[in-house]
């Protein structure tokens, strides 16, 4: 589904912040991405959700080589990816319902087609009574749940989440992780960037990726956890 080969990335003329990144994400797999702050986790996610371009190496998404894919075909690839941004990036002038249904609207669907699904999803993340609220009136945790609902509303094949449980209490965090696990069971490939070791114990990650100083190392989940416990 996703293949990175010797990918490097830099912002402008700055130093390379990601170097020789190589990995693959298979359909239906579950991955965690960890590493210290500033290691490049968000930058790596940006490369995956096609918000940035690599300065070298090859990226293949859903069987398409990104370097040779025409720009006007990239939106179709982005629609197959759901993203939970670290800073939420909700549109402040839209209601919770409007924010969450944005991906469906972008796909050209009519409101009647997705309304019930969006309302059910919002109920599931505990925001069933905040459909018409504006983001400015929501708490950090509520905003995060709206962002998560927006990321999953179009049933993406690949779900990327940047610190998705950073601002929520353990109970909501648990519900969100169960949502991700359910989506994964339905075939969605999930990659979560997190510092939260509780998530690492809770989810069935097949691989844990660790970013440090721009380099990516891969470990089997149980090996990583054993090492983490020893440390």
């Amino acid at each position: 589904m996703v293949r990175f080969e010797n990918v490097g990335m830099r912002y402008g003329l700055g130093p390379e912040i990601l170097r020789d990144i190589s990995f693959t994400l298979d359909a239906g797999s579950f991955h965690l991405l960890t590493g210290p702050s500033g290691a490049g986790k968000t930058s790596l996610l940006k490369l995956i959700y096609l918000a940035e371009r690599p300065c070298r190496g090859a990226i293949s998404m859903f069987g398409r080589d990104i370097a040779t894919t025409p720009r006007d075909e990239l939106p179709a690839l982005r629609r197959r990816i759901g993203v939970v941004f670290q800073e939420f990036r909700l549109l402040d002038h839209l209601t919770v319902f409007d924010n969450v249904s944005l991906p469906r609207r972008v796909m050209g669907e009519s409101e009647g087609h997705y309304r019930a699904e969006v309302e059910e999803l919002l109920s599931w993340v505990g925001l069933g009574n905040r459909l018409n609220a504006k983001p400015a009136t929501l708490s950090g945790g509520e905003k995060q749940r709206v962002a998560i609902a927006r990321a999953v509303v179009a049933k993406p094949e690949l779900l990327l989440a940047d610190e998705p449980t950073g601002n929520v209490d353990p109970e909501i965090g648990g519900r969100i992780m169960r949502l991700f696990i359910e989506l994964n069971k339905l075939g969605t490939c999930v990659m979560i960037a997190t510092h939260d070791t509780r998530i690492m114990e809770r989810v069935p990650a097949s691989r844990i990726y660790r970013l440090a100083e721009g380099k990516l190392t891969v470990a089997k989940a149980h090996e990583f956890m054993a090492e983490a416990k020893r440390a």
Partner: peptide
């Protein structure tokens, strides 16, 4: 600009 970027990232075509 934020609106443009977010909508672009969730897969909206330029024309939309």
């Amino acid at each position: 600009r934020e609106i443009v970027e977010v909508v672009h990232m969730i897969g909206a075509r330029d024309v939309f």
